[in-house]
Write a protein that binds this DNA or RNA. Structure first.
Lengths: 235, 235
DNA sequence: TAGGGAACATACTACCGAGTATGTTGTCAA
DNA sequence: TTGACAACATACTCGGTAGTATGTTCCCTA
């Protein structure tokens, strides 16, 4: 079920490859730097040299790890989705009511959005926009693959919302629109939230709770009081 | 009160200027074409030649009307805000309850968003992003001005929400967050809605009603049944 | 009816940025 | 110890693009 997200090195086919296992150090650094740049200036306004500068490295180094700028973007996108999945998917099968599970998923999603702004803004910039002109055939394929992942992710929430509606007896006229609105509320932080000085975590928790509350009310229900307590213990 | 939005030709200072009054034909065409291009590919991925091609015109024609690409973007942004204001502001002083006014404002906002996708997506791409590196001093000034307009627009909703909360006795912990969530729901269409075949208007109305319903529920209240009826008569 | 300017089109420049080709250095295996 | 390869850095190519400079046409006025 979680087979959707696999690393996928671009050196696939290289014979030697003894770097397998510990390799991802520099690669991850590049992804983080690229995400930061994409966040600040957007995809097409970001040059490879920008990313390199962010790393105190050179263009050559980046092209050693990624075939093209597009591939780099794909990798950042994929990493962003991995982060989201890792945060949310565990709660799909939590025990408790469907509503509680949905609340926890939403909370986790909301938190990870604020914690990983760079990747999330890259996600937001989205497949929809600048990639309408994806050139290569392989790129187009990767593109549709990423869209699939995104849809699956939304599907997790849609499914959770449907179950919640059933269990709680909510009337939801348009499920698709409901889940889009639901996520829109949670996602809204990417366009305005920027972490304040001294309160890194607690501020985010409060915001997340308010957002989840709003999103659930939109569906016609309310945040169950104890639903997020376990989450706080885990920290 | 509506002095915020004025056309502002860039020929300001030119002595002759007999074109005043009927001039805006080609200028508006450029704005529409630019908005369409920005929508499809984003700001920095759009070239002036792209916009020109969209018009069956040339780069020279565009530079005859706009000083720079940045200025063109500003003009598109401003036009988008003008459209929104024109749609929403009238309802600020509608009669009825605060809730009814808010509902109508939200409905109008939602409708205009779907009807004017191109401009709205340009708005969404936003001042925040690609313009972090606005070069000229005059540009920086224009930039903060546009941000002000945006904030004022949001302020209209924030104010309407506050009044509604007072009248309806709603408890809203974080007003700023509530209005951001409220608008996030309404704005969500820009990232996924694309008009279907035969039902141009009615589909949009239904969606808008659902969105407004969700947004209001998030605040803890409900869409009053008769609130949007007058709107339908007006058509 | 000359001419001046608006409203464009055409032609050109200068630069930036993606991608490539080729060096350089360290390491590890034989 | 050597040589092969990974992991970069440096240097270059080349297409695209913002902005400019210079025509060209048409209209309106003096």
């Amino acid at each position: 079920m979680s087979t959707v997200l696999e690393p996928q090195t671009h050196d696939a086919g290289a014979p030697g490859m003894q770097s397998r296992g510990h390799s991802s150090g520099s690669r991850s650094d590049i992804l983080a730097a690229a995400a930061k740049c994409f966040m600040k200036n957007g995809y097409s306004a970001t040059s490879i040299d920008d990313v390199a500068r962010q790393l105190d490295a050179t263009k050559g180094m980046i092209y050693h790890h990624f075939r093209s700028k597009t591939d780099l973007f794909f990798a950042v996108y994929r990493r962003g989705m991995e982060i989201n999945y890792a945060a949310v998917e565990p709660h799909v099968s939590d025990n408790g009511t469907a509503l509680e599970r949905l609340a926890r998923m939403a909370f986790a999603h909301s938190i990870v959005l604020m914690a990983e702004q760079a990747f999330q803004r890259t996600l937001a910039e989205g497949v929809a926009m600048h990639l309408t002109g994806a050139t290569t055939a392989a790129q187009r394929e990767t593109l549709t693959e990423l869209i699939d992942i995104r849809n699956q992710y939304e599907g997790m929430f849609r499914s959770a919302i449907r179950k919640t509606a059933k269990e709680e007896g909510l009337e939801i006229a348009n499920l698709s629109l409901a889940s889009k609105s639901f996520l829109a509320v949670l996602n809204s932080t990417v366009s305005w939230y920027t972490p304040r000085a001294n309160d890194p975590q607690s501020e985010q928790k409060k915001l997340a709770i308010d957002l989840v509350t709003y999103a659930l009310r939109g569906l016609g229900t309310d945040l169950p009081s104890g639903a997020l307590k376990t989450k706080e213990n885990a920290q």
